[in-house]
Computed example of a mutant assay.
Amino acid sequence: MEKVVVSFGDALLRSSDVALLDPPHWLNDNIIGFTFEFLSSSLPPLQAQQVSFLSPEVSQFIKCCGNEASDFLEPLDLPSKELVLIPVNDNTGPEAGGTHWSLLAYVRRYTVFLHYDSSPGTNAPHARLMAKNLDVLLGGKQNYREEDAPVQHNSYDCGMYVVCVAEALSEQHLHGHDSMFLRNITPQFVTQKRVKWKEIIKGLSCKSLSHNLQV
């Protein structure tokens, strides 16, 4: 069986998942799920109550199951969140897969869904469907808007742009910024983030191995 590199919260990464952080690979559900889990766990306590990072599995369920998702999502208490970050995939089925990632953000103070797509227009139908399904849970008063987003310059970095934009929006919420500027997310920045996430995973893996050796 393939080696497990790290287990973190609800996320589990194998060596083939971690290898996707090397260009020119697309990120899969497992890597994005891990990064969202890690970012969520890194939030200060107060912000952790205000911000929700949804996993790719949950977001795909929202898109595919429509109104049926409401009961399933109730324990997440999304109506109380100030910011909800949702990865969007162009896959039309319930299983993992697809060829393009983008990010949908619900911002409570503005009662709006903001869609950030590094390949503008590609995932708009999927994001709109997801927003429509979530709107029922959030009271049916939300607007939807396509936002200017950092644009990928290759065919494989869409998932990394999702991770980078989600992290930036979370940080801006933490510091109370109203304007969500994403100018720092350049192609070079995204490439560096691939390396950074590999370092984070390596650190967690070494820490876990050290703990197991001490037990």
Rank of each mutant, 00 (worst) to 15 (best):
T99F: 07
F36Y: 09
L103M: 04
N89Q: 11
I86T: 06
C65H: 13
G33I: 04
F113L: 06
F72D: 09
N91M: 07
V88Q: 04
D71T: 15
D135I: 09
D148A: 12
E82F: 01
A96S: 13
H115L: 07
E37P: 02
C64W: 01
D29N: 13
D90M: 11
I86A: 03
L46W: 03
P44M: 03
L78W: 02
F36V: 08
L134T: 09
N133I: 07
E146D: 15
E57W: 13
T35L: 04
Q47Y: 04
A69L: 02
L78G: 07
L134F: 03
E74Q: 14
E95H: 12
L27M: 10
F38G: 00
S80V: 09
L54W: 01
A131V: 08
P87T: 07
F53L: 13
V51C: 06
Y110F: 11
C65A: 09
I32G: 03
L137A: 12
F113G: 01
L129W: 01
L114Y: 06
A131R: 10
T99V: 07
L78S: 06
P79M: 04
Q47I: 15
G33R: 07
W101E: 06
K81G: 05
G139K: 10
V107G: 00
C65R: 12
N143W: 05
L39S: 11
E146R: 11
L27N: 09
G33A: 04
G33D: 02
N91C: 11
P120D: 02
D77L: 15
Y116S: 09
Q49K: 13
G97Y: 01
V84K: 00
Q50M: 10
A69N: 05
K132D: 08
F38A: 08
P75T: 12
T111P: 00
Q50R: 13
N30E: 13
K81S: 03
E57D: 11
P75M: 05
E147C: 15
D117C: 09
L73A: 08
S119D: 08
